[in-house]
Amino acid sequence: MSNQNDYDRIERNAKRRKLIKNTVIYIFLAIWGLMVLFPFYWMILSSIKSYSAYSSEYIPKFFTLSPTLQNYSEAFTAVPLGKYFLNTLIFTLCTTVLMMVVIILAAFAFARLEFRGKNIVFALFLSLMMIPNELVIITNFVTITDLGLRNTFAGLILPSVTSVFYIYLLKENFEAIPEELYKAAKVDGTSDFKYLVRVMLPISQPTIVTIIILKVIECWNSYVWPRLITDNSNYFLVSNGIQEIRENGFGRENIPAMMAAVVVISVPLIVLFLIFRKKIMAGVSRGGTKG
């Protein structure tokens, strides 16, 4: 009898402890979520406040009673935002496609081929990862200017068509594919290239998708380099475009219009992320354990 009571008590205690633990975790996660989401909320809120309302708020309000879409049309008319959108799309697509070709071939070479000095070259590659981007930007700027590629898509794209880190990530993935598969494919009559395309890439698909998504985000958000290498608005990307709204839109900063532009250009990325969320998580966790 007392035994039964003991069990009941233990069970009740365990339940209570679990409840407390869960409550704490959920409260913590909720606060965390709010912190992460707040900038988004602020962005959308600002984009639907009218310019005059926004300017007259000495202390910005956390809500608005008279939402307007005026800012959205202003964002598209004050500067050729549509054109910038297109530029960004071209830039992102070209950069990502070129980079995928480059890193896939490079990773294949490092993972599968035997050539003299392979390890040394790879070590050099890795050491490149330790040089901060800001340093490289200056030399890149000089190089691209010397080549006469300022204000061209080539000039925008070229410096980011490779990535040591992604090569490294992909090489690790390729190396995890068993040697026997290569031999089997050889006997089955495939060339190296076909093996890469038909076996290695599909097997490494989660990592590849992850890399593509990350690269697209990086391109979409890139600011410093496009800003540096273009001063002709025909080649502006959206990030520069927003800056333009701020600088020469109305003589004064039009923050609500800027925010409207920011909302518009964030949407594609958010949609992309939502679609591929599962794949990204799979790729990240796999890349992590294999590395």
Binding site: P178, A184, K186, V187, G189, P202
Partner: peptide
């Protein structure tokens, strides 16, 4: 001759099947 033109079939100890197919 390279393996692809020899017309041989090979079976490995660990099967070496293509996991994605």
């Amino acid at each position: 001759l390279p393996p692809e033109v020899r017309g041989v079939g090979l079976v490995f100890q660990n099967y070496a099947l293509y996991p994605h197919l």
